[in-house]
Design a protein around this nucleic acid. Structure first.
Length: 271
DNA sequence: CTTTTTGTTTATAG
DNA sequence: TCTATAAACAAAAA
């Protein structure tokens, strides 16, 4: 799940639950999840407190009371956070646990082990090294246009490229292109000025809507394409009704673009 | 049992 | 250097 809005929700969650409590221990079930070796992690963090957070795209940085000790978290496809008290309440898949002297714990849930946690000393240097571009909520229309138009590939894989704009994942790109009436296989360098400006607005619309509804898909407005994905498996839901374009009622097409499952309206999104 | 998956990185070929 | 594609990573759910 974790694309930009989900990571933003997790950032807010960590910020309201886990700041200003000294860390007494860190439990690590699988060292593959760490990008920093365990001994270094312990040495840097035991006795420290989390003091703040920063998010760029899908990356969450947790600041501590030492300026050059910053925890980087990436949630992969299914990562999550859960703050809990008794160790009996330890959630399933909490493979990394930050234990606080208060007796509370912050669990980093990794059902699929695609998630990563490690130390960073300088956020900007890290972003530069990993080629993370401007955050989807911060990018200017000019920067977006420059970066997109330099590519000849299909617009969908270009928007998934974190160096072009950071934070968009598979479903958000589909939603953005649907809201902007752009076909996922239109070449990035052929977008008109009008399309670029619509695209920029659509990115803001989708990200802000997702954050407002705390990334709970079934609560999104009916005019969103997301509902065709049927992640909401409520028995009361008429699944068939979600397979049509919410605007023109054409049957939504499912294909593969850039190796990823893609949904779009063949009537309103044309190459 | 098979298929699918919201992400990223790497290899490979053109 | 750029683009396109596939594979690998690992596990759970349907």
């Amino acid at each position: 799940m974790p694309e930009l809005p989900e990571v933003e929700i997790r950032r807010q969650y960590l910020e309201t639950s886990s700041l200003y409590q000294p860390i007494s221990h860190i439990e690590v079930e699988d060292k593959k999840l760490l990008t920093t070796d365990l001994a270094t992690l312990h040495q840097a963090l035991i006795g420290r407190q989390f003091t703040g957070t920063r998010r760029v795209g899908k990356n969450l940085f947790v600041l501590t009371d030492a300026p050059d000790v910053i925890v980087h978290m990436h949630f992969g496809m299914t990562g999550d956070l859960e703050y809990y008290h008794a160790s009996l309440d330890r959630p399933r898949f909490a493979r990394i646990v930050f234990e606080f002297t208060s007796g509370f714990n912050l669990g980093f849930l990794c059902p699929r082990k695609f998630e990563r946690v490690g130390l960073v000393t300088d956020i900007d240097a890290f972003l530069q090294r990993k080629k993370i571009g401007d955050d989807g909520l911060d990018i200017s229309p000019e920067t977006l246009s420059d970066r997109v138009r330099r590519k000849k590939a299909f617009i969908k894989p270009v928007l998934l490229d974190q160096s072009v704009v950071a934070g968009l994942g598979n479903w958000i790109v589909d939603e953005v292109l649907f809201q902007a009436f752009i076909h996922p296989e239109q070449r990035a360098d052929t977008l008109t000025d009008g399309q670029m400006s619509t695209l920029h607005e659509a990115i803001r619309l989708v990200l802000e809507t997702a954050i407002r509804y705390e990334a709970t898909y079934r609560d999104f407005p009916n005019c969103f394409l997301i509902h065709v994905r049927e992640w909401d498996d409520s028995p009361y839901d008429d699944v068939e009704a979600h397979k049509f374009c919410p605007r023109c009622k054409t049957r939504i097409e499912r294909s593969v673009v850039g190796g990823r499952t893609t949904f779009f309206c063949p009537n309103e999104q044309r190459v």
